[in-house]
């Protein structure tokens, strides 16, 4: 029986692999591997915590659990903008911890196999580029895939 459950779990994981949630910041389309995402919630009251980098908007109450929220715009070094009804929080699981990402708008879930994805060019300096795992072209649309590990690296250990 345990073998069966293991297989089911593996199948489920395999299902998620290669699929990406796309979202927009301004007119740029970004993707995050579905594997990392636990849910998408609407914008809600955020309690600010002093003493954190500006891109930490604070913490929210997610059904009794407290989760920190990061504004992706600020993390990527862009201008902050007022939240509207399209603004969403994508809850991401990283190293067994939950973090929310504020994005302008969630777009779609798309499958991308390896052939579609190209490594990002080594352009160096700009903030944001160093978080990318690949750049894909899906149906004529350019998607910048964010590497979650890299994205949160500065917030996780080691110091």
């Amino acid at each position: 029986m345990s073998i069966d459950t293991k297989n089911v779990a593996e199948d489920a994981l395999a299902d998620l692999r290669g699929r990406y949630l796309t979202f927009f910041i301004d007119n740029t389309c970004y993707g995050i591997e579905l594997l990392y995402i636990s849910e998408i919630i609407g914008i809600q009251p955020i309690t600010h915590i002093p003493g954190l980098p500006a891109y930490f908007k604070g913490i929210i109450n997610l059904r009794g659990k407290v989760a920190p929220i990061i504004d992706v715009r600020l993390k990527l070094g862009q201008e902050e903008r007022a939240y509207d009804d399209k603004t969403c929080i994508i809850m991401v699981n990283i190293s067994d911890m939950q973090v929310g990402l504020i994005v302008d708008m969630v777009a779609d879930v798309v499958s991308m196999d390896d052939a579609l994805r190209n490594p990002p060019p080594d352009s160096g300096a700009r903030t944001g580029d160093r978080y990318l795992s690949s750049i894909a072209n899906v149906a004529g649309k350019v998607v910048l895939n964010i590497d979650c590990e890299k994205f949160f690296q500065s917030d996780l250990r080691p110091y």
């Binding site: 915590i49 002093p50 003493g51 954190l52 980098p53 930490f56 913490i59 407290v66 989760a67 920190p68 990283i94 911890m97 939950q98 973090v99 917030d155 996780l156 250990r157 110091y159």
Partner: peptide
Amino acid sequence: PFPKFLAKYEIKQMGL
């Protein structure tokens, strides 16, 4: 407690 994710930032030192 504050989320573990924020462990790097010493919020406690701020008096919280």
